[in-house]
Design a binder for these strands. Sequence first.
DNA 1: GCCAACGTTGGC
DNA 2: GCCAACGTTGGC
Length: 139
Amino acid sequence: MNYWLLKSEPDVWSLDQQMHSGIKGSMWDGVRNYQAANNLRKMKKGDMCFFYHSNIGKEIVGIVKVIKEAYPDPTDKSKKFVAIQVRFDRKLEYPVTLESIKKTKELKDLPLIKQSRLSVMPIDTKHWKIILNMSRIVK
DNA sequence: GCCAACGTTGGC
DNA sequence: GCCAACGTTGGC
């Protein structure tokens, strides 16, 4: 299984909205960047993704699961980009903020920090575990 | 609100 | 194919 991070502005699409989309999940569409789209194409059913709120909050707030692999994004007229389907898995006990990620030296090389504009990125198992542990600790 | 970083577009 | 101009994202 692979791990990923998906970024969304919470006033456009938030984890709460994802939660209310229920068991059938929802489409993760609108990606218009080749690098991000290539990451979407690599996702397999069952992969887990951190859900990060950009701009407002700037923190990882939960986890969603990939339930359908890449297919043509119906919102993309050019037919170049893909969407996936994800389902709410859970909220983190404590959100992991960008600030605390920056302060953690093992996470210095996360694309979240180095490539702040990338909206879909891979996370190694090692880093996934570190972030999960951070989400169990009150800051 | 500003601006750095980065991606895309279009003229040449 | 290069690069200037422009647009977008996202942190601060």
